[in-house]
Design a protein around this nucleic acid. Structure first.
Length: 306
DNA sequence: AAACGGACCAACCGCTCACAG
DNA sequence: ACTGTGAGCGGTTGGTCCGTT
């Protein structure tokens, strides 16, 4: 922002370093050591700014630098460290002797990021990527009431709702008929791939404090039923092929096909036009059943992270 | 052979932080 | 407490290489 770079203040050389410049800097540092970088160029006889000299030394001339390709172990370590530290390249580099932050940053941006994405992992969050179809499913869950607000007023998924949402699909034998090609490719080690399985892990969510009555009366139970009833109703009130397919799917899950999935989604599209959508996303006070799960969720929010 | 585009990498830029005066 | 300066960091840019058309 207002501050000029060192190369602008005086007529300094920019761009790639020549072998002569490298030699001058190397000789100076090895002889006198690193003192004040701003005085190094003058003392070393270079037309560079101190900042540039420092960078050249750290990233290229330093004798303890490790050259060559990154090993698999190094790559794995970088990925693990990135998960823990984020884009703190200097901190990551500190754990890899002989490697510079710049080097690691370049490797991450050019290679590791893409590798993770190919494996279906979001390089920013290190969590499985939710694809468009999965997102639509999650959105559908939200539209049906599966959202609440956390203490920071961010919209989050209601674990109680999603628990039943998932169960509803499980019971309808949904996953058994889910096309393999929709699952995230290339990550056989990741059990969280696929539509329902890519939903938040609910195993940590504690249902112990919920009585059977509460659980059955929860918004989720109602909504699971609502979802299926809607499908049936939609089919009985309409003669179009979509409705027939949905009805067929609900009644006879064993004949469920990928084509049915698309048609099933149209039910959710239908629900989007439902005025309930607006109310449920804004004001939960009118929906005591949702509020119940909301309250229970708040109590366990720490255990539940998307 | 030339043009093009993507990958890679070195270097730059702007910002923040620490510290001395 | 304030200011100036240097060091360090992370994001971005620009040049080069290489494969493809």
């Amino acid at each position: 922002m207002g501050r000029h770079s060192c190369s602008v203040k005086q007529k300094m050389r920019k761009g790639l370093w020549s072998p002569e410049e490298d030699e001058k800097l190397y000789n100076y540092i090895t002889r006198f050591g690193v003192g004040c970088w701003s005085s190094v160029p003058k003392l070393a006889g270079l037309q560079r700014c101190g900042k540039s000299c420092r960078l050249r030394w750290i990233n290229y001339l330093r004798p303890d630098l490790k050259r060559g390709m990154f090993s698999q172990e190094e790559e794995d370590l970088i990925i693990n460290l990135h998960e823990a530290l984020g884009n703190r390249w200097a901190k990551i580099a500190a754990q890899l002797p002989g490697r510079t932050d710049n080097e690691i940053k370049n490797l991450w941006n050019s290679s590791l990021k893409k590798k993770l994405m190919k494996q279906g992992i979001d390089p920013n969050t290190h969590k499985p990527i939710i694809g468009e179809n999965e997102k639509e499913c999650m959105d559908s869950a939200l539209l049906l009431g599966g959202q609440i607000q956390d203490s920071r007023e961010n919209l989050v998924y209601d674990p109680l709702f999603l628990s039943e949402f998932q169960a509803a699909f499980d019971h309808s034998n949904f996953m058994n008929h889910f096309p393999q090609n929709l699952k995230i490719e290339g990550n056989p080690n990741n059990p969280n791939c696929g539509l329902i399985n890519s939903m938040p892990n609910l195993t940590k969510f504690n249902h112990q404090n919920i009585t059977d009555t509460h659980y059955c009366e929860s918004s989720a139970s109602k909504l699971s039923g609502f979802m299926m009833n809607e499908a049936k109703e939609s089919s009985s009130n309409s003669s179009n092929t979509t409705s027939i397919a949905i009805n067929n799917m609900v009644e006879n899950p064993s004949t469920f096909s990928w084509d049915d999935v698309n048609k099933f989604e149209s039910v959710f599209q239908f629900n989007k036009a439902n005025p309930w959508q607006e109310e449920s996303s804004e004001d939960y006070s009118n929906f005591p059943l949702t509020s119940l799960s909301q309250e229970l969720t708040r109590a366990h929010l720490d255990d539940f992270q998307i």
